[in-house]
């Protein structure tokens, strides 16, 4: 097995690793937190506090 064939296998393995990391965390977060908390972000709330228009 030459170095390039090894790199191909390594790239597949790393891809699988990153996919597993993302999906595992996603499932953990979605089952730990309430949907209302996760989707509570509202646009422009920072501006309403820090900037005075008019």
């Amino acid at each position: 097995m030459d170095v390039w064939t090894f790199l191909e296998v390594a790239a597949w393995a790393l891809s699988a690793l990153f996919a597993v990391l993302i999906i595992a965390d996603w499932i953990r977060i979605d089952s730990t937190y309430d949907e209302d908390v996760l989707t509570s972000s509202r646009e422009g709330e920072i501006e309403a506090l820090t900037e005075e228009h008019r």
Binding site: V37, S40, R42, E45, L49
Partner: peptide, 19 residues
């Protein structure tokens, strides 16, 4: 995540993007 002092957010936003 619920602390308003963390990034100055209050109102409905409990979890938002971070500056």
């Amino acid at each position: 995540i619920a602390s308003p002092v963390a990034d100055g957010m209050v109102h409905a936003t409990k979890v938002g993007l971070v500056r």
